[in-house]
Design a protein around this nucleic acid. Structure first.
Lengths: 134, 134
DNA sequence: AAAAAATACCTTGACAGGCGAGGTATAGTA
DNA sequence: TACTATACCTCGCCTGTCAAGGTATTTTTT
């Protein structure tokens, strides 16, 4: 049993396993702000449901990173309220019922903008935090 | 006079001016989690004080992006409490007194780790939000 | 057949970072 | 004298994250 307050928990890192046995980590706050974009991007491959989307994300991230369930469902609700995604019930497959999500036209426009923003963010942050060479 | 609630304000973007007259923007939540790293990186160029650090950041970001003062001083306090930076009063220059900050050994180690993390974050987010080519 | 595990969804409450709005003090300029 | 620029600081709100708790269904194990 490990005592662990909220502050310490927030400093915990997601372990990322790299090819060759190396491991790096990304803190939760770094991913903050990208949650909605990541979900929208995943839905561009077709309709999907929470559990599957999260597994897909973990897989693409190369290992241990994935959203916490509370974060995930909060994001779905936010995205649907903002008209970025639409949901419907499906009852196929094993296990419990699934709520499927589909990206909307507005969601696609948002995703396009988010991807542009990410490209820009990389440039700006590179300029701000990498070692200056000039 | 424009009515503007907090929610809308948080969705506002920092305008980034690019070479050639283009402009892009980066939302505040995207920068969240990088604040401390950006400050540490700036202090690697030598001791500096809040106002100057912020101007330096705006300049490097290519234009309009900069921390809000409340964000900046909150970060200084957090960094100093965590032993990443140390402060001392200076009274040179025009205008009011200045509190200078210096990066500590611990701060340098943290910055090195943060830079590694940023490199890793770029890879992971590229895999998660860019259009898949496979 | 009962227990366990896996699948799948959801809510509550607390926390930390960002920051608008407000403040203080100093020095130079109009 | 008033104004502006420099420079620092605090309060309180808002939002995203997520630990901890819950529910329901199906498959697997005992």
């Amino acid at each position: 049993m490990i005592l662990c307050n909220h502050k310490i928990l927030r400093q915990m890192k997601y372990i990322i396993h790299l090819k060759g046995g190396l491991a790096m980590s990304i803190s939760a706050d770094i991913l903050r702000g990208h949650t909605d974009t990541i979900i929208l991007a995943r839905l561009m491959d077709g309709d999907s449901y929470g559990y599957e989307i999260n597994k897909n994300i973990s897989q693409r991230a190369g290992g241990a990173y994935g959203f916490k369930e509370a974060t995930l469902y909060t994001a779905f609700k936010r995205l649907e309220q903002n008209g970025m995604i639409a949901s419907y019930w499906g009852d196929d497959g094993p296990g419990a019922r699934r709520r499927y999500y589909a990206i909307t036209e507005a969601g696609m426009r948002q995703l396009a903008a988010d991807r542009q923003e990410w490209a820009e963010t990389k440039k700006v942050l590179d300029a701000l935090i990498l070692k200056g060479e000039d």
